[in-house]
Amino acid sequence: MFDLLGIPPQVLFSQLLLGLINGAFYAMLSLGLAVIFGLLNIVNFAHGALYMMGAFGAWMLLNYLGIGYWWALLLSPLMVGLFGVLIERLLLRWLYDLDHLYGMILTFGLALVITGLFRNFYGATGMPYTLPPLLTGGHNLGFMFLPNSRAFVIASSLIVCLSTWFVIERTRLGSYLRAATENPALTEAFGINVSLLVTMTYGFGVALAGFAGVLAAPIYSVNPTMGSDLIIVVFAVVVIGGMGSILGSIITGFSLGIVEGLTKVFWPEASATVIFVIMAIVLMAKPAGLFGRSS
């Protein structure tokens, strides 16, 4: 086998894989943020906390009700989505006429409440979530070993992201959504229930976070702060990509994950900060973000 700059290919590829997995989470979370921001003009600070709720949802289903991973993939996002509907109807609804900053501050408070509650009941240490038997083991691809669980995360994240893109850009429902994003008053005049659309959009965006959480449960340990640091990186991803484009969010998410993975190979100390450095460079070169429309 070949060596790349003195780095064995196994190391390189396994870090690339890890990067791709991180990228899958960045993509799903920034996609949800972008969809929510497009219609509600709210930066959902609670996104990380809701991602954590998704993971906990899966853990609770397994440990309290004996419901396994596959059903959790469906049920947990659904519960998180319903919780999101409640948040939108009870809290966010009152903020639409105000400065966008209030939405961010309110969801920040929500994130504190949710994280704090889970920490009170489950402590700060992580809890393991056992893999379903179907996902244990893996395949030897010749140049590297590919565990099934990781391949599954990447594949399902890609499927979910691309179907979201398809629904928004290519279907009638998506056209309503895009119309409402562009001009809610006019869309309402055409007889479309924008208020319901807003609620559903928030619920869906949040369910995406919940889905990401379930995917994360067997890979990372389930703990109350798992979303807190992640959400800040996702914010940087969103600034780099710009929130104007659905496909842009997906591409930016995955590529930044890969860049982070590569940095881990070549300069491990910088891997935690590389995304923020890229953000600084993008701010200098193209302030609106790579896929953003300049305001």
Binding site: L95, L98, Y102, I105, L110, L112, V113, G116, R119, N120
Partner: peptide
């Protein structure tokens, strides 16, 4: 203990909704 975080979060939410 950790309830401080919860209380702070609730104060955040309440301030934004009721007492801007």
């Amino acid at each position: 203990g950790d309830w401080v975080t919860v209380i702070q979060g609730l104060v955040f939410v309440a301030c934004v909704l009721l007492f801007r």
